[in-house]
């Protein structure tokens, strides 16, 4: 198994604050890895270090077999990086943006390559539109087109679907999976649980530290979390009453249902007891959702 990303002890400090604190990541080639964690947990910083935009203060390892600290320039040639904020030229058309990128990478047969990429992402009809006039979903498509134009071996996507409508998000992920099937490795940061569930593996970081890693089921299993689901008409008033009771680490809504989670089964059971059998309420144990796990991780953090 070849590792596309294999770094150990990745660390970045800004002044006295440690933004990324000794993170180890090993992503096998061709897999799609989700990168999760609250805002400000160090996701963007990690991605920027991997593609050579920030210099790491500590850590060793390779990206696509190249030393990520000393061979950043060579890595850049084979990596596609999509920034969190749209960062193409709004006063250029889609085509002009792509042509510029193609020139920068020195792609042979530029026109054909741009045509193909436009067609692949359904941008052909809009190629003359200025990037600044596109809606969020189309901007994101254009950005994906631009950062896959040079056939990178590794794609680093920093919250690519933030603020994009569900249909566009779905289409985007179709594209990601198609690319992955063609052998591309993808590391994508996101806040959406449904997107996390579409990843082969997820990594959860918190305060610059890696706190969970594995498939969705593994991460849920590792958490040791027990979750009860309460459904019913008056469930909305229960959250406050349950929050803070012994055994209850967290009570919050999952859709219309209330999820009550904790790691102490006895405590949870006794907290649930008053509600069991209450008319109009259904209480049963359920598999914790990824969201339950993440909120739990975030809440128990100091």
């Amino acid at each position: 198994m070849t590792l596309a990303i294999d770094v150990k002890g990745l660390t970045k400090r800004f002044g006295r604050k440690t933004a990324v604190d000794h993170i180890d990541i090993a992503v096998p080639q061709g897999e799609v890895w989700g990168f999760l964690g609250p805002n400000g947990s160090g996701k963007t910083t990690t991605i920027r270090m991997l593609c050579g935009l920030l210099s790491a203060d500590d850590g060793t390892g390779t990206c696509l077999g190249l030393d990520f600290r000393t061979q950043a320039e060579a890595i850049k040639l084979q990596v596609g990086y999509m920034t969190q904020k749209f960062s193409f030229w709004e006063d250029l058309s889609i085509r002009e943006n792509l042509e510029f990128v193609a020139r920068l990478y020195g792609l042979p047969d530029r026109r054909r390559k741009v045509d193909e990429t436009l067609a692949r992402l359904g941008l052909t009809d809009r190629q003359r539109q200025l990037a600044g006039h596109l809606s969020g979903g189309w901007k994101q498509r254009m950005a994906l087109a631009a950062c896959t134009l040079h056939d990178p071996r590794l794609l680093l996507l920093d919250e690519p679907t933030a603020g994009v409508d569900p249909k566009a998000r779905r289409d985007f992920w179709e594209e990601i999976h198609a690319l992955s099937e063609a052998g591309l490795t993808v590391l994508v940061s996101t806040h959406y649980m449904d997107e996390a569930e579409r990843c082969d593996r997820i990594v959860y970081i918190l305060g610059g530290r890696l706190v969970a890693r594995g498939s969705v089921a593994e991460v849920i299993g590792q958490s040791g979390l027990i979750t009860f689901e309460i459904q019913g008409a008056d469930v909305r008033h229960l959250a406050k009453a349950l929050q803070g009771q012994p055994g209850v680490d967290y009570a919050g809504f999952f859709g219309a249902a209330l999820h009550v989670s904790g790691r102490d089964r006895a405590g949870l059971e006794s907290a649930m007891a008053p509600y069991r059998g209450r008319p109009g309420l259904a209480v049963h144990e359920t598999v914790p959702s990824l969201e339950d796990v993440f909120i739990h991780l975030q809440e128990k953090a100091p």
């Binding site: 593609c51 050579g52 935009l53 920034t83 960062s87 030229w89 920068l104």
Partner: peptide
């Protein structure tokens, strides 16, 4: 866009 320029070669 400067970040993007730097991320490209």
């Amino acid at each position: 866009t400067y970040e993007n320029l730097l991320a490209m070669p």
